[in-house]
């Protein structure tokens, strides 16, 4: 039994040492994920806490199909979406319609020089809904159909908002680099 299996088994038995190890292993990445979705650091900490409680109380549902890390990530994405929905942050009227179109041409080499934290700051500036769509599609790998189902929007809307979010982000990055 490898270490991850041992941790999972320990968590299923409700053993605190296993829970603590899982927390220590995944919490930094999950906090970054939460910040990407909810943008506010304090809210992200709440989502992180709530997500781990869900993880430990629902770990019996993890049947070993797919990676444990992927399953955990899904829990945190869902928890973040719940948090945004509870705070009415996924309001469809806060859309990308206000955003101007930006050109696609961008120097990727320049962007590579941008740190992850700076990129995160740029993402945080996106409106909630488009930020969520960008995160879900580009980083977490959800399809537009899945996003549309989760957010209760049309698939085309998801596509359009992703496209606009990307352009907005490019512009933000460019602005950042010019500073």
């Amino acid at each position: 039994m490898d270490n991850e299996q041992r941790l999972i088994a320990g968590c299923k038995r409700g053993e605190s040492w296993a829970q603590k190890e899982v927390y220590e292993k995944y919490s930094p990445a999950m906090l970054a994920l939460c910040v990407r979705y909810v943008s506010d650091y304090e809210s992200a900490k709440d989502v992180l806490q709530e997500g781990f409680i869900k993880l430990f109380t629902k770990i019996e549902q993890y049947e070993g199909r797919g990676s444990f890390g992927g399953w955990i990530r899904k829990i945190f994405v869902n928890t973040a979406l719940e948090e945004l929905a509870n705070n009415k942050m996924l309001n469809p009227y806060v859309s990308m319609e206000r955003l101007p179109d930006y050109p696609d041409d961008i120097d990727l080499y320049q962007i590579e020089q941008v740190s992850a934290n700076d990129l995160l700051e740029c993402i945080k500036e996106l409106p909630s809904r488009s930020r969520v769509i960008f995160n879900m599609y580009a980083i977490e790998g959800y399809t537009h159909a899945e996003i549309a189902q989760k957010l209760g929007i049309k698939e085309n809307s998801s596509r359009a908002q992703f496209s606009r979010a990307r352009k907005f982000l490019q512009e933000s990055v460019l602005k950042l680099m010019k500073k």
Binding site: A29, A116, N117, L119, I123, A138, I139
Partner: peptide
């Protein structure tokens, strides 16, 4: 962006 943020940690 994915590459930079997917495994980003705080």
């Amino acid at each position: 962006v994915k590459q930079k943020l997917e495994n980003h940690q705080l």
